[in-house]
């Protein structure tokens, strides 16, 4: 039955996507920046909208809207010897869960998930949570992110301090 086929293919897709998301969280928490950039397609974008109902990041205010170049810039900043707000140590820990496949075709998968993240800096811990929406390209080398949308639970803020690194 076609229903079974769908279920079977979704199960392996789901596993692939879950493993990808766990690995991405690990790469971020361990600051393996080269691998981070490698998770995205060449024109991939990391996007955190400035409001919950935003439909595109193009040409409007965003919290993050970064292509490879801007991500590379952010990496160069945090690794710079004079990035003094990184000096006292900056550690994060992500948990990703509730992974669901929204749609899949031969060359694309859209998946949603939920994340919780704690960040430690200057003797204090901050807490973030929200929803990821990943638009993946299926490539020979496996999955790559075309667009990662990050909807923060507290998108309106106010934010205590800023976000130096992606969530």
């Amino acid at each position: 039955m076609s229903n079974d086929t769908t279920t079977r293919s979704s199960t392996s897709t789901l596993q692939d996507v879950e493993q990808f998301l766990y690995r991405q969280a690990d790469i971020l928490d361990e600051r393996r920046w080269e691998e981070w950039l490698g998770l995205f397609t060449d024109d991939g974008i990391y996007w955190m909208p400035a409001s919950a109902d935003q439909e595109t990041g193009e040409g409007q205010p965003n919290i993050f809207w970064e292509d490879h170049y801007l991500m590379d810039m952010r990496i160069r900043r945090v690794e710079h010897p004079y990035a003094h707000s990184q000096k006292a140590g900056h550690r994060t820990s992500h948990v990703v869960s509730n992974v669901m496949i929204e749609s899949e075709s031969d060359d694309e998968i859209v998946a949603t998930s939920r994340f919780h993240m704690v960040e430690y800096r200057l003797d204090e811990q901050r807490y973030f949570g929200g929803k990821y929406t990943h638009r993946f390209a299926r490539m020979d080398a496996g999955l790559k992110i075309k667009l990662q949308r990050v909807d923060l639970a507290n998108v309106e803020g106010p934010f205590e301090y800023v976000m130096q690194i992606w969530l």
Partner: peptide
């Protein structure tokens, strides 16, 4: 204006990260 708003004034600013610190 939008580029400045993003780079300098958004919650992901790489500029005010160091100012606020």
């Amino acid at each position: 204006s939008l580029a400045y708003y993003y780079h300098v004034n958004s919650p992901s600013t790489m500029v005010n990260a160091d100012d606020l610190n």
